[in-house]
């Protein structure tokens, strides 16, 4: 609550440390691959990430690309089991959930995160993801430094888990500029042939 600006910076640094630590834990691989096509964890999906984005990371749950290398400007595609998808809010999803119900859980998860607790939900609508019925959320929130960010979250449920595709960027500097890149990524999202869980 009562933190000076230098303390806040220190907190941001410590947050970054924790994020990096988490990546190590998951044996993250900084792929830096030139090719854009990426296969998701456990070969659950394939997706094309923008070729000129400088950083691409994959771990046990997701693949992430960042235009400038920061964790605030990114595209992340992830697969999470029903048990793990909403662990932070102590809820479990299931394969029978409607897109609107999955979106409700995602909103609760967003509210649980300190960064997005007071996020404004701008849009909550049905969407098509890899040809399947899911949801699309658009939200805005302020970073710890007070900068406005926009985030889009797409989600779709399957037999054993959920697929989420996130695009996030500072509202003024990047969001519109790289939305085209994200749209291409979204359109390229496919379930692997092995996974016939929809």
């Amino acid at each position: 609550m009562r933190l000076s600006s230098s303390s806040r910076q220190l907190i941001i640094i410590s947050l970054s440390c924790l994020i990096l630590a988490a990546c190590n834990h998951f044996k993250a691989k900084d792929t830096n691959e030139k090719k854009s096509q990426v296969t998701g964890p456990k070969k659950k999906f394939t997706v094309k990430l923008p070729t000129d984005w400088i950083r691409k990371i994959s771990d046990r749950k997701s693949v992430t690309a960042s235009k400038d290398g920061s964790e605030y400007q990114l595209i992340r595609v992830s697969y999470l089991s029903h048990k793990k998808s909403f662990k932070t809010i102590k809820e479990k999803s299931n394969a029978d959930m409607l897109p609107s119900e999955l979106a409700e859980l995602m909103i609760a998860k967003i509210r649980k995160s300190k960064l997005t607790r007071y996020a404004r939900i701008i849009e909550n609508k049905p969407a098509s993801i890899g040809g399947k019925k899911g949801f699309r959320l658009k939200l805005s929130f302020k970073s710890p430094r007070g900068e406005k960010y926009l985030r889009e979250v797409y989600g779709v449920t399957a037999k054993k888990g959920n697929y989420f595709i996130i695009y996030q960027a500072p509202a003024k500097r990047y969001f519109k500029q790289h939305k085209g890149d994200f749209n291409k990524t979204l359109e390229s999202f496919r379930l692997s042939k092995k996974t016939k869980q929809f």
Binding site: R2, L3, G146
Partner: peptide, 19 residues
């Protein structure tokens, strides 16, 4: 003064961030 600064910063943030 440090406590006052922190409080002012907290107020500023809360007014801005939709909370």
């Amino acid at each position: 003064q440090a406590l006052l600064d922190e409080a002012r910063e907290f107020d500023k943030k809360k007014i801005k961030d939709n909370s």
